[in-house]
Design a protein around this nucleic acid. Structure first.
Length: 293
DNA sequence: CATTTATCCTGTAAGC
DNA sequence: TGCTTACAGGATAAAT
């Protein structure tokens, strides 16, 4: 479930656990997660050994570790968790996790950084000039916490789309960081039907949606993100192994058929962009424009 | 051109 | 108990 809140919590966890440490060895146990590092797994490892980890940054669902090193080198270790990726900081003597695909040992022989990913949709690669903003992220829009976000432009782009608003929110080229869970939660909070066309949103709708997204994401970050299910394998955890708690605050996601916490009516589920979409038909009417206040 | 779908993977849970 | 099918946090190339 790594969406913006989970990635931000992971970023903060890495900032406090691996920043300032020097990479001693890199073990790639499965080639797929480093598929975007075009020179191959061995080159991926050798590009990182001896580098000191600096600041941990994030944009949308991507995060990167700036690498201090030879003067003038501005490279970064770029990471994406995909659907089921986890970054765990573990003692060197901890047994290998199931689906452990890459391990970073540090020169101080302290806890290791491990990349674990059941579905292997995630990826790790070195971005040569990626210290500020990796070139690989050129097509990814700023997220709602990015100071460079142009809100007027965002509203214009939303209202230029005829697709349903949920599909628009999931498009990382429009605004980044929002995934399936937080799209549903934010649209519920804003009182907007997920299939309302973007070009049918009023300015007041956009303003309410903007506030709802920011509040939803900010609260989720404070709660450590959302950890779903009980199976453990593919579940999101912070690098220190602690689970998130925001799933307890979900209003619509995963609540199909249960009573809406506002009006009591049943939560519906439909498919939007091949993703399960949860909403309250009463609180999120299809066509009617809801007054701002 | 904008928009939608099919696909990459493994695992779990539900239905028969 | 076993087998089959649907579904799961995302991103993107290919098709429409």
């Amino acid at each position: 479930m790594p969406e913006l809140p989970e990635v931000e919590v992971v970023r903060a966890g890495l900032a406090s656990s691996v920043a300032g440490r020097t990479i001693g060895a890199v073990h790639v146990l499965h080639p797929r997660p480093v598929r975007y590092h075009l020179s191959g797994p061995d080159a991926f490892a050798s590009d990182l050994v001896g580098r000191r980890v600096g600041v941990a940054r994030r944009r949308g669902k991507y995060l990167w570790l700036v690498l201090a090193g030879p003067a003038g080198d501005r490279s970064a270790l770029l990471l994406h968790l995909g659907m089921s990726g986890q970054l765990l900081v573990q003692p060197a003597d901890a047994p290998d996790e199931r689906h452990l695909h890459a391990r970073f040992d540090f020169a101080d022989d302290g806890p290791q950084l491990r990349f674990v990913d059941q579905r292997i949709f995630g990826g790790l690669w070195v971005s040569p000039q990626g210290a500020e903003t990796p070139a690989e992220l050129a097509h990814i829009a700023p997220d709602l916490f990015d100071p460079t976000l142009d809100n007027d432009q965002l509203v214009a782009r939303i209202r230029a789309r005829h697709s349903g608003i949920k599909r628009v929110l999931l498009d990382q080229g429009i605004v980044s960081g929002i995934g399936n869970i937080y799209a549903d939660e934010a649209l519920f909070q804003a009182g907007i039907h997920p299939q309302r066309p973007g070009d049918a949103l009023t300015l007041a709708d956009c303003s309410r949606l903007h506030s709802a997204i920011r509040q939803t994401l900010a609260t989720a970050i404070r709660e450590g993100g959302s950890t779903l299910g009980r199976s453990g394998i593919a579940n999101y955890r912070r690098p220190n192994g602690v689970t998130g708690h925001y799933q307890q605050r979900h209003q619509v996601y995963g609540r199909t058929g249960k009573p809406c916490l506002v009006c009591g009516g049943p939560i519906h589920r439909v498919q939007v962009a091949q993703r399960s979409t949860h909403f309250c038909p009463h609180c999120q009417p299809d066509s009617r424009v809801i007054p701002s206040d």
